[in-house]
């Protein structure tokens, strides 16, 4: 199996552990990842505040480059995943956007024929690799560890492509395959605050606080996420909250990698600001 890989800016910066663990897990499963040639920033939520058409141009450049190879495109960051999907929808539904983007692409000698399939790694692991193959690869099941599976907003909304929009369950199934337990976590698709933690901390931190408090109340030892911004918000600001949760925030790829018996260093476990080591040693 081979896929194109769109890491996105966060995975090259604060979300490095996501990039590392994703590559390690895919390598362990003999899946080849080929990084998209000279990819650019997807524009995230910020660019759409400035210029709608240009935000589609940014995403379309990546899609056009991806289309040169007959491979599906993996986008692990929730914002990238959403934005690439959004542009694909806009190009299908809005005639004017289609015209303008076509001209913009032509200015760089590019074209896009709408043939790229955008996938989330969670989707790929579950539906392309499958639970049977994943279970066979599990060497060090995370017995007794209790996690809260947290999806956040943008991989299920507004375009639910591989899981239920209101009650997604794919990550729980994956974590159970890794040998861990999952607590009931009804806030699994509630917003973490996004960029508000930086711009309006009094609002953003409150949203993150609610998520951590509920995870703790439900008996979770760690919260498992699919998004670099969720991971950052929930991990980096715990000391600014009115209660001390001391709750590690892991990527689902890190959990899977640990269950595969991969080296924690390879999975970026130490990159957590809240250390996961005590929890993983079973000391909690």
């Amino acid at each position: 199996m081979k896929y194109l890989y769109f890491p996105g800016c966060s995975l090259k910066g604060t979300g490095k552990a996501y990039d590392e663990s994703l590559r390690a897990v895919f390598a362990a499963l003999d899946i080849e990842l080929s990084e998209l040639e000279d990819w650019n920033c997807c524009g995230a939520t910020a660019y759409a505040n400035i210029d709608e058409t240009k935000s589609h141009v940014l995403a379309a450049r990546n899609l056009a480059i991806a289309e040169k190879q007959d491979l599906q495109l993996i986008a692990p960051c929730s914002a990238c995943y959403l934005v690439l999907n959004k542009t694909q929808h806009a190009l299908r539904e809005q005639e004017q956007t289609r015209r303008v983007v076509k001209e913009a692409l032509a200015a760089a000698g590019l074209q896009y024929k709408d043939s790229v399939t955008i996938r989330h790694p969670l989707d790929v692991l579950i539906n392309d690799v499958g639970f049977d193959k994943l279970a066979k690869r599990v060497k060090a099941p995370l017995k007794g560890r209790k996690f809260a599976a947290y999806y956040g907003c943008q991989i299920v909304r507004p375009y639910a492509t591989f899981d239920d929009q209101y009650n997604p369950t794919s990550m729980e199934k994956l974590l159970k395959t890794a040998g861990a337990e999952c607590v009931e976590y009804p806030l699994k698709t509630r917003c973490c605050g996004g960029s508000l933690t930086g711009t309006l901390p009094e609002v953003g931190l409150r949203l993150s606080y609610i998520l951590l408090k509920e995870a703790r109340r439900r008996g979770a030892e760690a919260l498992v996420t699919v998004c670099p911004l969720c991971q950052f918000n929930l991990d980096a600001y715990q000391d600014k909250m009115e209660e001390q949760f001391d709750m590690p925030i892991l990527y689902f790829t890190q959990v899977l990698g640990l269950a595969f018996g991969l080296d924690p260093r390879e999975l970026g476990i130490k990159r957590g600001i809240v250390s996961a080591e005590a929890m993983l040693a079973g000391g909690r």
Partner: peptide, 16 residues
């Protein structure tokens, strides 16, 4: 492809 990207954004503006 910095200059290529800038060209694209400019073209988008002109066409809009």
């Amino acid at each position: 492809g910095r200059s290529e990207l800038q060209r694209m954004l400019k073209a988008a503006e002109a066409s809009k």
